[in-house]
Write a protein that binds this DNA or RNA. Structure first.
Lengths: 132, 132
DNA sequence: TAATTTTTGTTATAATATAACACTATGTAA
DNA sequence: TTACATAGTGTTATATTATAACAAAAATTA
């Protein structure tokens, strides 16, 4: 199972930083944080990020160029992601909605495409930001 | 109606390039193309792109940092976009699926978020690339 | 062991996007 | 018409995001 794969030193360091953050982090902010742990160059971060995305430990929030840990350790959702993003405070949460996933997973168009992956981002205002 | 808004010179030039392309274009490739028409700097392109996205004439493909014209001139879909992307040939198409849009439009989570927008990108292989 | 693959570290650079400022055009309202 | 506000322009500089290329080290495999 790829999700149980052994991580290398750099991959662990980067994952650790991301998992400790409740919110998505940007590559260069990760770089800043990991400099004290011996990672010096952007490429070292990007390589770790690529791998972590590939094995489903983290996801990329495409519209924000940032990375968030996948809390759902059991199911390897590397291929089907749904996020909610508050456009005011930039709070991001991963959504796990069975009905929605089923709907998307089984989506077929009439163009003969074979889908293997999707990414959905909802934008709006979170509870807190609606009030203020 | 904002979709019938009068466009400025730069906005028209940029939109024209994007509409003539069947595939999404990147900002700097647009810049290259419009240099002969008097647009010299990235910012001029990005400003036009921002506006065109805002009024729904074009959409940004977030995972590709590229821009595609909205063919659907009647409905101003600035807020609800669905794309299919071939990971081999990078062919991108906008999907208009009533059932899917309805489903997404009415999606509610239990977090109290108020959604105003979404973007969905499906990835896979197109008909042609499956064969080859 | 040797061969192969993966990861690392490093420097340099490419690609994507915005800040700041002065100026111009356009719209609006007295 | 004038004044004011708003939106767009042109420009230079710079910030941010991401990858190419190469040599060396580590891990894997046969």
């Amino acid at each position: 199972m790829q999700n149980q794969q052994v991580l290398t030193k750099n991959q662990k360091i980067v994952l650790d930083i991301i998992e400790k953050s409740s919110q998505p982090l940007k590559a260069y902010s990760i770089l800043f944080d990991v400099k004290k742990r011996g990672i010096n160059a952007p490429l070292q971060v990007y390589r770790a990020l690529d791998k972590l995305v590939e094995i489903g430990k983290i996801h990329k929030i495409e519209s924000r160029n940032s990375f968030i840990a996948c809390k759902n350790s059991k199911c390897q959702i590397t291929k089907a992601t749904v996020f909610s993003i508050c456009e005011n405070c930039e709070d991001v949460k991963e959504i796990h909605d069975h009905k929605l996933s089923e709907h998307l997973k089984h989506y077929k168009d009439n163009k003969g495409m074979k889908y293997s992956k999707y990414n959905l981002e909802f934008f709006g205002l979170c509870k807190r930001c609606i009030k203020n």
